[in-house]
Design a protein around this nucleic acid. Structure first.
Lengths: 263, 263
DNA sequence: TTGCGACCTTAACATAGGTTGCGCGGTGCG
DNA sequence: CGCACCGCGCAACCTATGTTAAGGTCGCAA
C-alpha cells in the first residue's frame, strides 16, 4: 500500500505527470507556470482552433472537456480525441503550418496558451519535466491507437463500455474521480460521434449497459457499479495508458477525496 | 512549375524529409548516417517488436513494408498503422517502458536501428533535421487520425479507396512511385485487418473498385487509372499529409522515374 | 507427382447497426 | 406565456456488412 495523496491535489496536470516521474519542487513550479499561462475561456460548443488555421501556441486544458473532431465533405462528423482536465493538445504543433482538424469545447472550458518561446525556455531548464511531457504525448497517441481498436474491432457494446472505462481511468490519473464516480458531460450524440455509431444505436446500447448494472449516469455524473465487470465487458486492458505503477488504476487508492465533482 | 527531381533519388527517407524543409549537405549526410545504422533484416510476417517489450532503439524502414498491430483478447486483430520505406517507427519510444502493440514485417524487411545516444548526438548537432523529424512524426499521428475517420465514418468502399490513395501519395512523397504505379504488397486479409472489414467483404468491395475502373492491381503492383476519381470516391483530402508544397501530390511531378518497382 | 497452405472468389444466409419518424420533458429565450 | 430546440427513448423497418462454406488457383516442399 502506498500513501494516498500526492503533492498537488488540485492540479490535474501535475497530478497526471507525477504518475510517471517524481518531479523536483522546481520542476513542479515550472509545470504550474505552464499551467497558468494566459488562460482563455470558451463556451460549450465553441471552437478553440479551426481546421486550416496556423497553430501558434500549445494549449492545455485547465478546466472542462474539449475534443478534436473533423467532418467528411458530406457532413459526417467524427470525434478523434477527448481532452480532459490536465491534457495537453499537441506538444509540437507549431512545427506544422496548418491544422488538419478542429478542436472544440465540449463543456464550458478554460485553456492555457503557451507560446513556443515560453515552452522552449521552460523545458530547456527542466529536462525532467520535458521528459514527462513526452511521455504524456506518447500516451496520447497510444490512446488514439486504442480508439482505432475500438472502431475497427469492437462491437457497439464494447466500444461504449470501453470509452467509459477509459474516461474513468484517465480522470482518475488526474485526481478527478471520487470513489467510483466522476464527471461525465458527454451527450449521446457526442458518444455517437466518438464511437462511429448512430445516436439511436447508442441509446439502445446504453440501455443494455444500464440493464447489466455496470454503470449509472445521472446529471452528468457517472458512477461505476462494477469496474472489473466493465473492463471485462469492454475487453479493456490498461497497458496502453502506461500508468507507471503497476495495477495503480485498480487500487481503491486511485480515487481522490478532494477532486471537485459537479452535481 | 518546379524542377523535377530532388537531390537524393535513391533514399526515400531523405526524399520524404526534403518535402518539408530544404536540408543542408551536412543535414543530409547526418540523415544518411541514421538511415544506414545497424540494418537488420526480417522475413515477411516476422515480428520486429512485440507487445510488452522494452523499446530500446528507434527504428526506420530501409526497405519493405511493416505494420503496427494488436490483438483483442479474443483474437480479433487490428492493424493500427503502416510503415513504408523511409518511415520512422516512433521518435521517442524509449521514453516509455513497455510496447503496447506489435510491429511486424508485412514483406521481407530491412530496418535501421538507432540507439538513443546516436539519435541524440545527431539531432543535437542538426536541429533542422530534428525539426524535419518532428514534422514527420506529427504527420504520422495525423495519418492515425485519418484512419480513425476511415473506421468511424467511411463506408467499406470509401475505406478501401482511401487506403489506396493514401498509400500511393505516401509512396510518391518518398519517390517510390513510377507514373501512376507503385508497389502494393497487401493481401486482402491485411486490408481487412486495416479497414475493420471481413475478408469476404473486402473481396466484394475490391471487385466494385475494379469494376469502376479506378485502379488495377496485378502481381503486387498497383496502377491507378483515375487519381481524381479515386480521391473523390474516397472523400480524400490530402491536407492531413502536410506535404508542404501545395498541390504537389497532384502534379505529374510527384512521380519519379528512378524508384525501383518490383515486378 | 502429390499434397498442402496461402490467397482469392462466390453464394446463401444471418445480424448488427442505420434510418425514419414520433413522442416526451426540459430549458432558454423572444 | 409560448415557441423552438435539444437530449433522450422507442418502434418499425431496412441494409451494409459479417458468417459459413465451398471451390479454384498458385507456389512450394516432400
Amino acid at each position: 500500500m502506498r500513501a494516498a495523496a500526492p503533492s498537488s491535489p488540485l492540479n490535474p496536470f501535475l497530478r497526471k505527470l507525477e504518475n510517471y516521474t517524481r518531479l523536483s519542487a522546481e520542476d513542479r513550479s515550472a509545470a504550474v507556470r505552464l499551467w497558468s499561462e494566459r488562460p482563455q475561456r470558451f463556451r460549450a460548443k465553441d471552437d478553440v482552433v479551426r481546421e486550416g488555421e496556423d497553430p501558434r501556441v500549445v494549449r492545455l486544458v485547465i478546466e472542462g472537456w474539449a475534443c478534436r473532431y473533423k467532418y467528411l465533405e458530406d457532413g459526417r462528423r467524427q470525434v478523434l480525441g477527448l481532452f480532459l482536465p490536465g491534457d495537453i493538445c499537441d506538444l509540437n504543433v507549431f512545427v506544422l503550418r496548418e491544422m488538419d482538424h478542429f478542436i472544440g469545447a465540449v463543456t464550458p472550458l478554460t485553456m492555457a496558451q503557451i507560446s513556443r518561446e515560453l515552452f522552449e525556455e521552460v523545458t530547456l531548464a527542466h529536462p525532467r519535466l520535458l521528459q514527462a511531457l513526452w511521455w504524456d504525448s506518447l500516451v496520447g497517441t497510444a490512446i488514439q491507437r486504442e480508439w482505432l481498436m475500438n472502431l475497427g474491432s469492437r462491437t457497439a457494446f464494447e466500444r461504449i463500455t470501453h470509452l467509459l472505462c477509459e474516461v474513468f481511468l484517465r480522470l482518475s490519473a488526474a485526481g478527478r474521480t471520487r470513489g467510483l464516480s466522476c464527471e461525465f458531460p458527454l451527450t449521446q450524440t457526442m458518444i455517437a460521434d466518438i464511437t462511429g455509431l448512430s445516436t439511436v444505436h447508442v441509446s439502445r446500447t446504453f440501455q443494455a449497459v444500464r440493464d447489466e448494472g455496470l454503470v449509472e449516469i445521472r446529471e452528468r455524473v457517472m458512477t461505476i457499479r462494477d469496474l472489473d465487470a466493465l473492463q471485462v465487458a469492454s475487453l479493456f486492458s490498461a497497458n496502453y495508458l502506461h500508468l507507471g505503477r503497476e495495477g495503480r488504476h485498480l487500487d481503491a487508492n486511485c480515487s481522490s477525496e478532494d477532486g471537485p465533482l459537479p452535481g
